[in-house]
Design a protein around this nucleic acid. Structure first.
Lengths: 219, 219
DNA sequence: TCAAGTACTGACATTGTTGTCAATATAAAT
DNA sequence: ATTTATATTGACAACAATGTCAGTACTTGA
């Protein structure tokens, strides 16, 4: 039992092997690990000690980089939002002169559902975080804007009247809702009705076709 | 400082005022409080002590009725599923001879989104619970079944060919996904684009119309 | 080579939460 | 009234999670 009795901080002579990263690297590593745990185990899997163990550091290191657990969560939010925004806008900004919604739908679902982003954001919303004005607000607005512009181009090309702005907004909302919904209940639902991965793909295409028809019919 | 030192369990003579409910009543009360907290504060608001305080009991009482926290959660799942199933099936089973999807859509969104059910179920799904075979599985199956039957009736009435079963399934999936999505991100999204309560209603109607058109057009 | 800045660590403090237990009060049955 | 069953409670145990801190080791710049 060795009554060591390290009365007043006996430093215990550590070995000396230690990995030291740049602050940025460390932050990225930690965020990745946190995201992974969140995706796999849900909200309750976000424990500093676990995350730390995952990447082989001590949990105070996380506190060092993010101040507090709350800080880590906020950083997660910020990154998820940024990633989402990028993916979506670059997808919409590409040079498709054809107005095929299935491309967009595919991208949206991919960005939100297939990757864990939607689950992450959902959790954050469910916990009442992410109520900042600057977060989701702008993203959605920008996307609707981009979509509307595209529809107007398309309409002009066909010599039809410009589409209703609210209609565009609703299309975007439906897509967003559906993608979020699918990210959460999709797998369970698909399983429940005996849909395999290919069936899910068929569903997405079906949805895209539905929107396409509406797109064409409306203008 | 009164060194009372109640060495070996000195019963402390309690006053004697105590509310005693039937087990069933107590369980219901607890579940209601839990659901409320879950809806208001999210997953992390589900603490036995808080729930107990909300309804003026001690937290061991909850343990007494549900064995453990896990038990409480499972009971929540079960009840939410049952409620959802009832609402949906009675809504679909009503005697609408007209095939107006907006009724259904309204019911679905109401059952899932307006009430906190979807948020609750989402959280349960996100935490990796509710993977039981018997839960969501049957519900979704039954609903699709009911919908398909209705479509077939409608088709027969119009002398058209019976609709594709997978098409019905996809309509149901889209609705479910959209409703779940709206329950989670709906408010934020609506706020982001400046939609008020009336706008949300318009969105739902728009969606119903979209489905109705598809319903009619497909057959 | 020395100094300064800082990423990182182990040990500990603190707090909060679930769960246990013996004791108590209350409703129902006899 | 007495007994029986059980809903309920206060006190405590056990544990887990965040956060603090002094000290250590690595990197960079002079």
């Amino acid at each position: 039992m060795s009554t060591v009795a390290k009365t007043a901080a006996s430093p215990a002579k550590t070995t000396g092997k230690r990995i030291r990263r740049t602050a940025e690297e460390a932050r990225r590593l930690i965020l990745d690990a946190a995201e992974e745990r969140l995706a796999r185990q849900g909200p309750e899997g976000l424990r500093l000690q676990d995350i730390a163990r995952d990447i082989g550091i001590s949990h105070p290191a996380i506190l060092h980089h993010f101040e507090s657990r709350e800080g880590l969560v906020r950083a997660l939010i910020a990154r998820a939002n940024a990633q989402l925004r990028d993916t979506m806008l670059t997808a919409l900004g590409g040079e498709h002169t054809k107005a095929d919604a299935s491309d967009h739908i595919g991208h949206v679902f991919e960005a939100l559902s297939d990757r864990g982003t939607a689950r992450l954001l959902s959790w954050l919303l469910l916990t009442g975080r992410a109520t900042e004005k600057s977060d989701a607000h702008n993203v959605m607005g920008e996307i609707v804007e981009a979509l509307q512009k595209r529809r107007e181009e398309y309409a002009a090309l066909k010599g039809k009247p410009a589409p209703d702005r609210e209609d565009t907004l609703f299309m975007a909302m439906l897509t967003a809702n559906a993608a979020f919904g699918e990210a959460i209940v999709g797998r369970q639902l698909a399983e429940a009705v005996g849909l395999d991965a290919d069936g899910i793909k068929r569903f997405r295409n079906w949805f895209a076709k539905l929107l396409n028809e509406h797109w064409d019919g409306e203008q």
